[in-house]
Write a protein that binds this DNA or RNA. Structure first.
Lengths: 222, 222
DNA sequence: CAATCCCTTGCACTTTTCCGCAATGGCACC
DNA sequence: GGTGCCATTGCGGAAAAGTGCAAGGGATTG
């Protein structure tokens, strides 16, 4: 079994529930922190003392409070941690349930497991740890199906995602056109953007641009 | 100390964290359930056996799954429970952080305490239990802070939220006007909706309607 | 009762978005 | 090289959204 585990979770009671469940797996050293920055510090310190953590279990969203923060999310934490300790195993434990978002976590951050905060999560986290210990990847039961099934498999390219992001950021169509022109994107005229937007609306079944972005956000594309 | 506590919380690990913390307070009988309907059944059964629960600690939101549900939220649960056992103490434990919403819980459901899911919630839940035991009302420290801080002071009323929701659902301004007119809302003309939308854009610092809804979603208002 | 304030609403005008149509040009396939 | 397909783009008119202005209408205050 793993010997040294770090947990980053900002809800105190949930963190203590996690600690308890991992202790039941006979993991001797379990550290719980409530801030991403603290997690990174612990990882660094452990590395320096030649006693690195083998696995990091982290939430995705951390509420802001009076403290100043460098890292504000689990994604950022994982990215930073992997820079200094690339071989560490990472498990994401979150309420996130948007397939697109979780797929992105796997593709870009190469996480080893994802467990949703849900009713059966005690079993799930246990299974996840065991699978990761064996060098396998683990995703919550509820997700496995969704991740593989083709129905949810809308593939949006960089252009589409950027377009939706710019829209969500408050740019007008004309400003987006300008943005694309400055960066020499292929379809950069106002008319092309409108065309693309129309197609995206069809794909998402959206009636208005607002609806489109709301759908894209709900499904985790942006 | 209380002798018999019921916990309704749909995240398994959080529930077990709660159980652990309450056990540390020397509460002998702690039952944890993951569904509102189960909570109501437990309360009913305990009453019938003349061994009623003294206090109910419940989350507000319970994720839907394959099971059919009568009660879908902590609010509904509390309302039903108070019908059959009006003297039971109720503590809400939730990520909810909108002051208005929590005030409504106090005003309409007469809850005895509110504890937010946050970093220091272990201490908070302990304090809450002790205060409620003494017949007092308790609200999280963070809430008192939120009351003062201007940052979280965005209070949107039902009208604003509905407006944003309808927009996100793909309705056009004119359709929203019609929707409001059918339901006899106060500001139901197209012009009023545009006016309100303009004000919301100012509040959220949004440049376009898309931006507005994206912000509202990110910040958890809809 | 008058003065005042704020909210609601309609009107008119501008800006922005939507969308069909047609011209152009690249690319693949025959 | 010819043919067809599709993405890109401009144009133009229609639809939708944004906004200043002013006319009411309550509610409050002096």
């Amino acid at each position: 079994m793993f010997q040294k585990v770090l947990i980053a979770e900002d809800h105190g009671l949930t963190g203590s529930g996690l600690r308890e469940s991992l202790a039941a797996l006979s993991i001797p050293e379990i550290i719980v922190v409530h801030y991403c920055d603290d997690a990174l510090l612990k990882i660094k310190a452990a590395l320096q003392h030649d006693k690195p953590f083998e696995i990091l279990i982290t939430d995705l969203s951390f509420k802001a409070d009076y403290k100043n923060r460098n890292l504000v999310s689990g994604e950022e934490l994982i990215a930073e941690v992997k820079k200094i300790q690339p071989d560490i195993k990472t498990v994401v434990y979150s309420v996130e349930n948007r397939v697109g978002k979780i797929k992105t976590l796997y593709d870009t951050l190469e996480i080893d497991a994802f467990v949703g905060k849900e009713r059966r999560d005690i079993n799930e986290i246990t299974k996840a740890i065991q699978q990761v210990l064996e060098g396998k990847i683990y995703f919550s039961e509820s997700l496995k199906h969704a991740l593989r099934s083709s129905e949810n498999h809308l593939e949006l390219d960089e252009y589409d995602i950027l377009l939706l992001q710019l829209l969500a950021k408050g740019l007008k169509q004309e400003e987006i056109a300008q943005y694309f022109q400055e960066r020499n994107y292929h379809a950069s005229s106002l008319r092309s953007i409108q065309d693309r937007l129309g197609k995206l609306k069809t794909i998402f079944g959206a009636k208005t641009p607002v609806h489109l972005v709301a759908q894209a956000m709900e499904r985790g594309f942006i």
